[in-house]
């Protein structure tokens, strides 16, 4: 697969899936593993797993796919493919500025905001189901909350501190 094909495949799937990570995963797996066999399933799932254990947006795992296909250039092209549709927000915001005083639009934004807040808490529940599988993960979670809310540390400090504590506990506790 050449660089142009990487660009076309990833950006098309990303646009088709409206940025939905699971849908992109399914489409790409079909194309790269099942159909063409360019990557084996282990490589593909490893790349996807990286999205969970690396910082930033979840879709950065596509950089890993790009790297596996075409080295550094492939990774860069994959990143450009998933970032450029973000620019579509600019004309949408320009249009929004023109009509933002219309009552129905204000109501729509209130509805969008309320639905978004609901989704945020749904993400909490879904990640919680996966992440809180033992004593150490619970201690890490509560330490993060304590560092930020009680010790008034920043989010990054809270996260790094709690993760370090978790690593220490993981090494010394047989759980």
């Amino acid at each position: 697969m050449n660089l142009f094909q990487i660009f076309v495949v990833i950006s098309t799937y990303n646009l088709l899936a409206f940025g939905n990570g699971s849908a992109v995963l399914a489409l790409l797996q079909h194309r790269l593993v099942t159909d063409t066999g360019i990557l084996n399933l282990n490589q593909f799932l490893y790349a996807y797993a990286l999205g969970r254990v690396t910082p930033g947006q979840n879709n950065l795992w596509l950089a890993s796919i790009g790297y596996m296909l075409h080295g550094w250039l492939g990774a860069l092209v994959a990143m450009i493919s998933i970032q450029f549709p973000g620019y579509l927000v600019l004309p949408v915001l320009k249009g929004y500025e023109r009509v933002r005083n219309v009552r129905a639009v204000q109501g729509a934004i209130r509805g969008l905001t309320a639905a978004s807040v609901g989704l945020m808490f749904a993400v909490v529940v879904n990640i919680g189901r996966e992440a809180l599988t033992g004593l150490v993960p619970w201690i890490v979670l509560l330490s993060t909350l304590a560092l930020v809310f009680l010790a008034r540390r920043g989010l990054l400090t809270g996260m790094v501190g709690a993760t370090a504590l978790g690593l220490v506990l993981k090494f010394i506790l047989p759980i």
């Binding site: 807040v117 033992g134 993960p137 890490v140 993060t144 989010l155 809270g158 709690a162 978790g166 993981k170």
Partner: peptide, 26 residues
Amino acid sequence: DYIDATILPAALGVVIISAWRLGRPI
């Protein structure tokens, strides 16, 4: 596995705080 057991719960903490702070107005 180590990363899953340590970073993921810390990230969950960040997500909870983020959801709480951004959702506070409603």
